[in-house]
Nucleic acid binder design. Structure first.
Lengths: 245, 245
DNA sequence: CCCCAACCTGTGATTTCTCTGAGAAACCCT
DNA sequence: AGGGTTTCTCAGAGAAATCACAGGTTGGGG
């Protein structure tokens, strides 16, 4: 089952129609706050914990549909937390947060059970997309919602990373793909450059705000090239995407 | 009967449509957890036990369609467990886990009856593949789903390990075969290097993640050589296989 | 109708990611 | 033990992606 969220895109719901529940675990409060805010915006119900013990305790009565778990916690290591979580909630999917330069071998085995991970610093779009994927595949959401976004004759497949316009395949880079996904998840809505920067670029991006203009330019070249444009500028406000019609 | 699993590939179901049940027996908890996670992800229902007695007791009321049994248990030796299991469930197929240097001839005798074994450290793809084979042949799954994966003009036979492209036979090494099988069981899906490493390489592999790149390179040489490529790189995301069309 | 802020986009430096050759070590079969 | 095969590390070449910068363009308020 899906319904329309305050943000305008379809959201996942549990079989009984109640919102999806996500537990966020990180010791840096700025991170839990950032994530909580972003995930609530998805229409999900969020709880957070700052350490492993709190996570296990919270999970027990909150019974989340998914967990976002930092691998680096003050009191226990990520794997122990995982083990304890799994004792109470054997099927809950977990999205791990790891440091970019963290030893790769810590990652080993984490995705084996269908779990997933993102490296810090992450972009919110990436976290949300992966979480949606995990929840979708775990069956916690009752609709086997498919992974394809459609706006007009433009399609974007989140599984295969395939993008087509009018049937023609279009190759996008990773950043272009995320930007387009964000636009397509919010069709007909004006998104400011600040919003785009906050969602699509990682939270520690320190560069020039005009990367957004640049990447919009790239996208137009690939998506609107010689066709009825779908990406529109609202001067002073931001950008929006809508069907060419 | 088959249906589409959360992962997108077809899964085995019992004649009455209920999920396949598998009992996992190992004294190392990290192993039972790893296996439970991976096998649940196949859509199967999993119970685990840490010793022979627990295994026999659990089997009695769980009535699994297959058992994964470590030969090295603290309380009894593998053969006794097997004997007791067979008293309650005469036909259940068993996948033995053995140490690499275990006495081969003993195993050989065991597998004569249709059982199978893998050596530790194993790869999850291998365990899953063997289990699928056992369950398929035992008739617990109602469709004798055939053992050939097909993507475009590429075929891979899980029983005979035969691989062909456009009718031509292709010789693959064991690792190449497992990698290709994993790709073909997830066609049109981007699989990250981490996912591939977690599924195709053994759980204790501590090496460089670029073995994946290397083996993709080998596969391309053998499968895509001079033809329309089927293996594609999604830079920054992973690899996927799809029909050349 | 003019001007300026906002926006667009070409260029190229830098960084990141991927591919693959060469060779060492392990393995296997006889 | 010996030769062929397989697995894997290492490292360099090459390709692709990201981004800063800057000059050009546009649109709308005054």
């Amino acid at each position: 089952m899906t319904t329309t969220s305050p943000q305008g895109h379809t959201e996942l719901l549990r079989p009984d129609g109640s919102p999806v529940r996500v537990l966020v675990v990180d010791d840096e409060q700025s991170i839990t706050e950032l994530l909580s805010m972003a995930l609530r915006y998805e229409g999900w119900q969020i709880r957070s914990a700052g350490d492993g013990l709190g996570a296990v305790r919270t999970a027990r009565d909150f019974r989340p549909d998914a967990v976002v778990l930092d691998m680096m916690l003050p009191d226990m290591d990520g794997l122990s937390v995982l083990g304890r979580l799994r004792r109470d909630l054997p099927d809950v999917p977990v999205l791990f947060l790891t440091a970019k330069d963290a030893v790769e071998d810590r990652i080993a085995g984490l995705t084996a059970g269908g779990d997933d991970y993102v490296t810090k610093p992450f972009s919110l779009e990436e976290v949300v997309a992966r979480l949606r994927g995990l929840i979708r595949r775990s069956g916690a959401a009752d609709r086997r919602s498919d992974s394809v976004l459609v706006v007009g004759d433009l399609t974007l497949d989140e599984d295969s990373h395939e993008v087509t316009r009018g049937g023609d395949g279009i190759h996008l880079t990773a950043t272009e793909f995320e930007l387009l996904r964000f636009l397509m998840r919010n069709p007909r809505r004006v998104l400011s450059k600040a919003q785009i920067l906050d969602r699509v670029w990682s939270y520690d991006f320190g560069g020039q705000a005009n990367v957004v203009e640049l990447y919009i330019s790239y996208l137009r070249r690939k998506i609107d090239a010689g066709r009825e444009p779908m990406i529109h500028t609202r001067r002073g406000a931001g950008y929006l995407i809508k069907p060419a019609a």
